[in-house]
Design a protein around this nucleic acid. Structure first.
Lengths: 245, 245
DNA sequence: TTAATAATTTAGGATAGACGAAAATTCAAT
DNA sequence: ATTGAATTTTCGTCTATCCTAAATTATTAA
């Protein structure tokens, strides 16, 4: 595949108002898109992304990451400080966001238009995001009413590359008595997602923290008069927006 | 992509009734699927597919085709007689038909569910067919009512790999006075397709041959009381089923 | 400060898939 | 039979991506 997406022509055409219109994004290979996406996610924590973390995330040998990082730096997609990690450039961030948009629109479409479960869409989207054109993704988004979040509550970047990364809190951090709306699951593990669905703990629902056992014990929540026990590992993955005050 | 679809595990599991259940098809790379599809189409003419024809079809250098053909033969997907061309094995044909099903279901889905024009779907399907899982393709097919032909009238192989390749006649071969139903366009060229759509000459319509100018001249057809002049090159691409008698 | 450990990079290779030049084969026409 | 054109294959290279093993740098503990 790599070979067939190789650019054969010269420089891409640059037309009117290139100063503010973002330059046309070149076609990237699937691995490159995966790297940029992973770096984007790691960087959201604030620090530059370490190559080792990248290797873990992408399930590659660290040495392979080093090689690719060098090439991406040459292409101006990221800045690399030896032994310090990598940061995306503006160009790299735009590419990452475009891929993220594709991924999340596809996930939303599969759920809303084709009846997939929210636990099934991740791998499918992972494959399609590299093959779908922006046009197709836009049509999918339109067909399901321009959603702003994917099935797991993750925000969908706009066509222009704007994202609103809301800073939610983890259910694990709420004090007893707090009431909050569930907004997002920070995990794609199918088992975990199915379990959450079984509990009816999905984005949009409202929960109240009834009790917290100390020392990493379970959290008791109430939703629609039903009480549930949630382990701390699970609660940590559930992101919520507490009601004001 | 090639590297990431490489099989890492051992032999695929073989369970009950492997005698008649076709053996599980291994994951093939995108280039391999393209070769098999092209060979399948070339072989439909009856003769083994020549490597040169393959090279033209796939827009590759003949030498590249030779190399890939050797690899495909080693994998048991085709038989190669030097200087004679290639023939798909049963295994190769099953793989080709699966790809063809994907391609055509995707084309039909894009038109019926996402509002694409029949002149736009080919390149999009060409990319998606390698990324979509069989499950997704089946869901797409179900969502649009299990079509039996794609937007150009090409038959969609069943899940099991059965196709009914009807032998239509070309509009260019019909005698004056003949009445026929248009069934299929044997071309994917967007310009040609848009032109046919302008003429309302699309699968399902009924035409009558009014006049044929000799020596490769235009053909006059009538459809819904409207007369149209069709050049022979175009008429040749339009496949029809003449009414009985 | 030094030794041990962890993180990272470099070196050296492998593989899939592509290319072009040149050699080999086939086939048709003498 | 011979020859010339067309076709096909062989062979050597190239690029992107991955790998393992060895070397290097950074960090932590003693």
């Amino acid at each position: 595949m790599a070979a067939r997406t190789r650019r054969r022509s010269g420089e891409p055409e640059r037309t009117r108002r290139d100063r503010d219109a973002s330059p046309p994004l070149p076609e990237l290979t699937a691995p490159v898109e995966d790297y940029l996406k992973a770096i984007y996610e790691l960087e959201r924590a604030g620090e530059p992304a370490a190559t080792t973390d990248l290797a873990v995330e992408l399930r590659l040998a660290p040495a392979s990451v080093t090689g690719m990082v060098r090439r991406l730096a040459e292409q101006g997609l990221l800045m690399h400080e030896r032994y310090r990690g990598v940061r995306l450039t503006a160009k790299g961030r735009r590419s990452a966001l475009r891929t993220l948009r594709r991924h999340r629109v596809i996930e939303a479409y599969l759920v809303q238009a084709l009846g997939y479960g929210w636990d099934e869409v991740h791998p499918e989207a992972e494959r399609l995001e590299h093959a779908a054109t922006d046009d197709l993704v836009d049509r999918m988004a339109m067909a399901i009413g321009e959603p702003t979040v994917d099935p797991h509550g993750a925000p969908i970047p706009s066509r222009a590359g704007a994202v609103e990364e809301a800073r939610y809190r983890s259910l694990a951090d709420l004090p007893v008595g707090a009431i909050a709306d569930m907004m997002r699951v920070a995990d794609e593990d199918p088992m975990l997602l199915r379990y959450l669905a079984d509990l009816s703990l999905t984005p949009g629902c409202t929960v109240r923290v009834v009790e917290r056992a100390p020392y990493g014990g379970p959290i008791t929540i109430e939703m629609k008069r039903q009480r549930r026990l949630i382990g701390p590992a699970l609660a940590e993955r559930v992101l919520v927006r507490p009601h004001r005050e």
